[in-house]
Each structure stands twice: as structure tokens, then as C-alpha cells.
């Protein structure tokens, strides 16, 4: 499949933005300035970006506790995200949600989620809206291998099939739910689960943007065409701890180093596009530099931004009360 040059540039920029955003948070978190929990998406960028490159603002996604990547891939504005993570009034959620609850409904981003398995049922609902309103949209539920075991997830697979909903279930399988390996926690296979519910199953290497983009494109097209749900199983590696502060004593010594060396989606992308002559190094370097500036200025702005005010505490519990 031929990918538009624009899409390539945009996707590279999104992946680079996620990488820099997360690496920077890793450093900033250690200074103690960032409140709350932070779960990093480093190493998994091609999944969110490869899937979302097939979506528009009128499609809907749900994310997880590890949500920064999905947000950026879906077009949520970076400085607003950074300010949110710092708990500032300029944050996308006005400092009231933080890292785990970044959302931007104008971008079809129905929120990161602090509850494992919270997203899939919501995406059945979003898909129902798209279907009933006939707006041509699809819904994509991103969730982890750990979340694939939740009753809410399994019930959603069933519901989506029964109602023939335009939803894609993207299992981001990084092999761990917290400190427990999926070989311990996941019974059977994702494939058998999908087939058990009567939906098509697809899988791909999550460090290869092109593989994700291609497979997700087919899955999304299938759903968009009114053929019902699809499960897309993306194989990934997580580069940092479950959350910041996790020493990862449960992972073998070279595991992360190997993923960084051999499965860095940014390196693989660059190699592929330059070898094929689609993009050149200078263009990519320019993106790198521009992203570096963007992250830097988002951090500077977030630190300088005003704190929420007392009145914000009581605002927005209801639309009207």
C-alpha cells in the first residue's frame, strides 16, 4: 500500500513527539516536580501512531493508564498535555485530571483511563453512536494484555459482535500487566478469544510502523464498512517500568536493552523510508529538532503556567445542577 508522504511525515513527527515527551517526563518525574502516577509509552509509539494514522477527528478512541502516546497520536495538543501533567490550569483538563485522565473530545479522544478494562465497553458505546448516527465513524479501544482478561473487555467483545458494531479492539501486548507476565496471567490466546466471539483476528509487530499502519488500516476498513468488530493484536515491548519508580526486578537483564537496540520503531522507520527514498535524513532531522523545541517549550510553559484556582474545585461536576 502506498502511504502519502504527508502521512509519513506526520506519523514520524507523532512518534518522535511521543518518544521525546515520555523521555522528558522520565527525567522530570525524577526531580519530584510532577505529581501523581506516570506510566510511560516509550517503545510502543508505532502502535498508537500506526493505528491512528487511519483515523480522523470524527473517529473515537479510548486509551489506558499508559495514555500519553494515544493522545498525541490522536492529535491532542502537546503543551496542553504537559500542563495537565503538571497540574496547571492551562492543562487540557484544567489540572483536574492529570496524566491518567487526559482527554480531548474534540479530537475523538475519550480519555486515558485509570481503570483497567474501562475503555472497551465505552468504545462499544462510541461505535453505537457512530452506527446509529450514521456518521461513518469507527471506535478503537486500545487496551493491554492485562486488560484483555477483565470481564468488561470480554463482555465487550461479545456485545460488539452481537450488535455488529464498528469497533476495533487493539490489544497492545507488551507482555506484562504491572509486574506479572502475560504468560502467567493470560489463558489461551488472543486469537482464540477473537475467534471464539466470531470476529476477525489480525496481528502485527508493534515496532514496525508500516505493519501496524497496514493491518490497522484493514481492520478499520472492515469495521467502517459495517462488517462488525475486529481484534488487532499488536506485539510490543515496554521500555520503562510499569510506572515511574518501578525497578523492574521481574524482567531479565538484557530485555529492555535488546528492545531498544533491535526494535526501536523510530530507527526502523528512518531506515525504511530513507532506503526506499521516500524521505531523506535532513527532513527527519528537521522534525527531530522541531520536536525537541516543542517539548522544551511545553515544559517551560507548563512550569510557568498558573495553578488552578479555588473556584475550579467546584466547577464542572455537572453540566447543570
Amino acid at each position: 500500500m502506498q502511504i502519502a508522504r504527508e502521512t509519513l511525515l506526520r506519523s514520524y513527527r507523532a512518534m518522535r513527539t511521543i518518544r521525546d515527551f515520555e523521555e522528558r517526563l522520565h527525567v522530570e518525574f525524577a526531580t519530584g516536580e510532577i505529581p501523581g502516577f506516570v506510566h510511560l509509552y516509550c517503545g510502543e509509539e508505532a502502535s498508537g501512531v500506526g493505528v491512528c494514522a487511519n483515523l480522523t477527528d470524527s473517529d473515537t478512541i479510548s486509551s489506558t493508564h499508559r495514555g500519553h502516546g494515544h493522545c498525541i497520536a490522536k492529535g491532542v495538543e502537546v503543551s496542553g498535555m504537559m500542563a495537565e501533567i503538571y497540574g496547571k490550569s492551562t492543562g487540557v483538563c484544567r489540572g483536574k485530571g492529570g496524566s491518567m485522565h487526559i482527554a480531548d473530545l474534540s479530537r475523538g479522544m475519550l480519555g486515558a483511563n485509570g481503570i483497567v478494562g474501562g475503555g472497551p465497553p465505552l468504545m462499544c458505546g462510541a461505535a453505537l453512536s457512530h452506527k446509529v448516527l450514521k456518521d461513518g465513524g469507527v471506535a478503537v479501544a486500545f487496551y493491554g494484555d492485562g486488560a484483555s482478561n477483565e470481564g468488561s473487555t470480554l463482555e465487550s467483545l461479545n456485545l460488539a459482535t452481537v450488535w455488529k458494531l464498528p469497533v476495533v479492539f487493539v490489544v497492545e501486548d507488551n507482555g506484562y500487566g504491572e509486574a506479572t507476565g502475560s504468560s502467567f496471567a493470560v489463558a489461551g490466546t488472543q486469537k482464540a478469544r477473537a475467534e471464539g466471539f466470531g470476529m476477525p483476528y489480525m496481528e502485527c509487530d508493534g515496532s514496525d510502523f508500516f505493519a501496524v499502519h497496514q493491518t490497522a488500516g484493514e481492520a478499520i476498513a472492515h469495521a467502517r464498512a459495517g462488517n462488525g468488530p475486529v481484534m488487532l493484536h499488536v506485539h510490543l515491548a515496554r521500555w520503562y517500568g510499569h510506572f515511574e519508580g518501578d525497578a523492574m526486578s521481574y524482567r531479565a537483564a538484557g530485555e529492555v536493552a535488546e528492545a531498544r537496540r533491535d526494535h526501536d520503531c523510530l530507527v526502523l522507520f528512518r531506515r525504511k523510508v530513507t532506503e526506499a527514498g521516500l524521505l531523506d535524513d535532513a527532513e527527519l532531522d528537521a522534525i527531530d529538532e522541531s520536536v525537541r523545541d516543542e517539548i522544551e517549550s511545553s515544559v517551560v510553559a507548563a512550569k510557568a503556567a498558573p495553578l488552578p484556582e479555588a473556584a475550579d474545585l467546584l466547577a464542572d461536576v455537572y453540566v447543570r445542577y
Partner: peptide, 21 residues
Amino acid sequence: GEDVAGGQGGSAGTVDAWGGV
């Protein structure tokens, strides 16, 4: 409970890796 020991199925083969979050 979830990760009351932790580390099972992990590549390092450690158990009791967390002992709860």
C-alpha cells in the same frame, strides 16, 4: 490479589518481585 507477590511469568523468573504495588 494483583501482584501481591508479583514477578510470575516475568522474564527474570523472580517471584515476590513487588509484594503488592
